[in-house]
Every structure is written in C-alpha cells, then in structure tokens.
Design a protein around this nucleic acid. Structure first.
Lengths: 166, 166
DNA sequence: GAATTTACGTCAGCCTTGTTGACTTTCCAA
DNA sequence: TTGGAAAGTCAACAAGGCTGACGTAAATTC
C-alpha cells in the first residue's frame, strides 16, 4: 500500500493495519480493564452493571436517577433493577430531592463506599501499573486518543463530571 | 495530596484523580468504539458476539475453533451458538483440517467478507478520525498504555496474531 | 385551579450472550 | 488398541440489555 505524506508529516499511523491494531488493542485491553472488578463481584450478587452505578454515584454524589441514566446510557428499567438491589442491600441511599421532591439524590452508604473502594483499588492498581510502565507522555497520548474517539455529547459528559452533581 | 518526585521525573500522572480519569475515558471510549458496528448489526439477526467472531476469522483465516475460543475468551457452547448461525447463513465456512481432520479451519465466505468490510469500515472510520485528531505521538502512547494494561498471556496473543493461523 | 409534564418506580415479557454440566462422534497418537 | 483431544450439541440458567404499558407524586404551565 502506498502512503503519501502531507505537510511533511508521516501518515503511516493511519494505515488500515495500524487502525486494526488499535481496534484489537481496545478489545483486549478492555477485557483486562474489567477483569479485576469482575473477579471481586463474582460470588457476590452483583455484576458489572452494579459496579458502573457504584462508580458514578461515588464520583458525583447526589446525582439524580436521570443523571445516572444519561451517563450510563441504559434504560430506566434496566438501571432500576440494579439500583433496587443496591438500595435494598444498603449500599446506596436515595434521598428525596430538597428543591425538587420528585428527584432522588443518590449517595453511597458507608457499606457502599467500602465496596467502591475495593473495586476501584483493584482497577486503579492495574491502571497505575500500566501508566507507570508506559510513562507520562504515553499516558497523555492515551487520554487524547480515547477522548477523540468519543461522540461530542459523550465527551462533554466525560469532561464535565465533577463532584456535587452533574 | 502531596506528590513526591523520583529520579527527577514528575509522577503527577499517577494520582488517583488521573487514574480515575483514565478509567472513565476507557468506559466512555469503549462505548463509542462499539457503537457503529452495533448500529449496523441491529436489525440483522447478529450482535456484538458475531462481530467479534467475524473480525478474528477475517484477521487470521484458517484458524481453528479452539484458537478462536482462546482469543475470544468464551466457552465452546457460547461460541458455537454464534458460529452455528454464521455458518448456516453462509457467512463462514468451516473446512475440515488437512493434517488433523478433527480440526475445523474457519474462513469467511464472500458474503461474510462483505459484512466484515461494512463493520470494519465503520469502526476504522471512527478510529482514523480519532488518530488524525490526536496525532502520531498520541497514537503511539495510546497503543503503549493499552498494551501495558493487558495480562501477559493476552498481550502475547495480541502481538502474535497474524494471518495464516494463530 | 385545572391540565399537563416530569421524575421515578414497577410489571411483564423478550433477546443476546455469557455460564455449567453431561454426553457423543471423530480422529490422532502413544 | 486405547486414551485423550477437537468439535458439536442438548438443557438449563443468569446477567443485563430492550420495549411497552401503567401508576403516582410533584412541579409547571395555562
């Protein structure tokens, strides 16, 4: 395959072969990425969906059900099943909204925070090892490419997530 | 949080906050990554599992069922369901092994290759746009971090995948 | 003040894709 | 010739997505 240069910059990294390698890297890395939390959750009555809910409730305490729905990109019914069990088991608390009483503000309980810590410790340990092995420049590139892959709306969400609501 | 330096190199990129950002970037980017093929497959009788099988059969034509099982990390029963429909619909051909007749060497038919092209065109288009936006240095970092995240065994698989078998 | 909209919850049913366990057939290799 | 490997299949189950329909409470609009 013949590659042309543009503005003197090599575009070798845009060959189909390079792109395919990137695609496969995403596939394998994502499996590794979820493996540790999955291992912790198996045996408990929870799964990956619970992990995601817990993560974002920890991340943005007080967020509403609709907020969480939007972030996770699932239906109300699907989230409800997960949230129901977390609330019933006392890991998540749903407080009636102060200004708008229709809303439910979601918080982790002490017990919920404990599980969150176990899960994110495991996930961060892998991430930390990878970051350390790759170095700061690579990490910067990693984040840049992932961000560029997101749809604009998702990217906005990703960037604007902060504590105290969404 | 106080950060220490080591060997004169900043370790700011290893803070929990940075790691958390990386974790969320993986989550959001992976959703975007699978969105386009998912859109193509919805309506057809296929799903993400079919896409994965098709991808790796295209990638390493002639690979055996056991090979594919190992790459995908699922059970024989789970893969068989997917493979069954692809073979019945004439997208995949399972040829009896030449040297070992117990083995089945998997190949895409013309029809299978056509779907593969549609799926990978969509996925590569997104990847290409992200790569182009991020630039070659970032892409290098992206690949480096993803590779570092994999388990050694998975990394070996990722690196050794080539045509003509696995 | 009445009507409409929003936020949330829930029931019922379906699909995909993963799992275990058990069993068969075919074939290679010691 | 016999044990083990490769593949296929049946059955049953679970997680976690989905749609559609409905109900209730609270906010908002007319």
């Amino acid at each position: 395959m013949v590659e042309s240069n543009q503005g003197g910059e090599s575009l070798l990294f845009l060959t189909d072969e390079q792109l395919r390698k990137g695609i496969e890297a995403m596939f394998f890395a994502y499996r590794a990425f979820t493996a540790d939390p999955d291992r912790i959750l198996e045996g408990m009555d929870y799964g990956r969906a619970h992990h995601r809910a817990i993560h974002f409730i920890h991340r943005a305490p007080g967020l509403t059900v609709t907020n969480l729905l939007t972030i996770l990109g699932v239906t109300k019914q699907s989230l409800n099943r997960v949230l129901r069990s977390l609330i019933d088991d006392g890991l998540v608390e749903a407080r009636v909204g102060r200004s708008d009483k229709r809303e439910r503000n979601l918080h982790l309980t002490a017990k919920g925070a404990e599980l969150e810590r176990a899960l994110s410790d495991a996930q961060r340990a892998r991430m930390r090892a990878a970051y350390r092995a790759a170095g700061p420049v690579a990490v910067q590139g990693f984040r840049t490419v992932l961000e560029a892959m997101m749809d604009p709306e998702m990217r906005r969400q990703y960037q604007s997530l902060r504590e105290g609501g969404v």
